[in-house]
Design a protein around this nucleic acid. Sequence first.
DNA 1: TTGAATTTTCAGTATTTGTTGAAAATTCGG
DNA 2: CCGAATTTTCAACAAATACTGAAAATTCAA
Lengths: 188, 188
Amino acid sequence: MNLPPLCESFVLHFGEMGSRWGINRTVGQIYAVLFVSDRPLCADDIVERLGISRSNVSMGLKELHSWNLLRPHNIQGDRREFYGTPDDIYAIVRTLVDERKKREIDPTLTMLRELLMQSPESEPERHAQDRMREMHELIELMTGWYADVQKLETERLIQLLSLGSKVVKVLDFKDKIVSLPGSLMKGK
Amino acid sequence: MNLPPLCESFVLHFGEMGSRWGINRTVGQIYAVLFVSDRPLCADDIVERLGISRSNVSMGLKELHSWNLLRPHNIQGDRREFYGTPDDIYAIVRTLVDERKKREIDPTLTMLRELLMQSPESEPERHAQDRMREMHELIELMTGWYADVQKLETERLIQLLSLGSKVVKVLDFKDKIVSLPGSLMKGK
DNA sequence: TTGAATTTTCAGTATTTGTTGAAAATTCGG
DNA sequence: CCGAATTTTCAACAAATACTGAAAATTCAA
C-alpha cells in the first residue's frame, strides 16, 4: 500500500470496518482513500495507492457509484475520469443513511405492509401478525422522524443534535406556557 | 420450512435482509422465528421450523446471545433451554442500536482519536487529518445525541419522534419567549 | 457417581463472495 | 471513420464464510 502512514492506518481501518457493514474491504478502502485525498483521483491512482488490480477498482467504483457516494471531476484535457467525495461531510452522511434506508428498511416496510393485509388463519398467525404490526409501527415512526429531520439545513440539524434530550425540557416548558390563561402566544 | 405461510414469508425476508446487514441468513431467520413465536422455543423447535442442522442453531443462538438479543426462559421440569425475544420492541431496537454502535462506530472513534494525536509529516497528511477531524466531530455529535436520547423512557421518545423537525419551531418559540423582558420563566 | 438428555465444538465440505488477467467495449482526438 | 487510451465485463481462480455430522463436553436426575 503506497500511502503516508496516517492515511494508511485510516484506509486499513475502513477496510476492516467495511466488512462489518455490508460492503467489502476493497470498497471501504477505495472510499477511504478518496475521502482523505486532497485532490480527485483516477482509477490508476487508486490502483497505485492500494495495490489492487485495475478491474477490482473498476468494480469498487461502480459499487460506490450505486451508493451515490462519489463526486466525479472532469479534468481539462484528460480523458480519464477522476473521483472525489463530497466536501460536506453532513451531505455524505445523509446520502449514506438514505441509501441504507432504501436498501435495508424500505423493503422490510413493504413486506410488513403486505403481510399485515392478510387474514391470519390460526392463533399463532394472529400473534405473529400482532408482532409484525408493532414492528411496522415502530419503523414508520422512526423513518417518519428521519424524513422530517432530513429536510433541515445543516445548521438546524446541528442545533437539534447538540440539544439532545434537553428538547424534552423545552417541550415541557412550552406546554406550561401554552396552557397559561391569556398566554403570550400569538403567531405560530 | 415448517411454519404457517405468514410466518414463513416473514422469516424468509429476515433471512435475506440479514445478509444485507452484517449477520448471516440463518441468524436472521432464527431471530425472526423467535420474534413472531407466541411462546419461547428450544433449539429443537427451531431445527424443526427452519429445517437446518442442530449445530447451526446452536451457533446462531450463540451469535444472537452475543448481541444481547435473546431472552432465556426456564420451563419447570424441562432441562432444555427456551428462548424468546423481549416483548418490548423499543427495548429490542435500543439493544440493536447499542450493539451496532459498539461494533461499528466505537472502534472508528478510537482509531480517529489516535490518528488525530499524531503530527502530520506532509501536506497531504495534514489535509487527511483535517478530514478525519471533521469525521470525528460529526460522529461525536451523533453519538452524543444518541447517548442522551437513549435515556428517555419510551413515552418521551415517542413524543420526540412524533414531533420530528417541528421541535425546531418550538425552539424558536422558546427563544422568543425567553428573550422577552420580564419573561415568565422562573424554575428551570 | 452414573448415564441419559442436551448442548457445544470442530474438522471437513459446500456455498458464497471477492479478485484477477485477458478480452471486449467504449470513448474521443485526429 | 481509425486507432490509441481508457474503462468495463467476465470466466477462472482464490479466499472467506456458512453448514454439517460426529464426537466431546456439560448438565442434572436418580
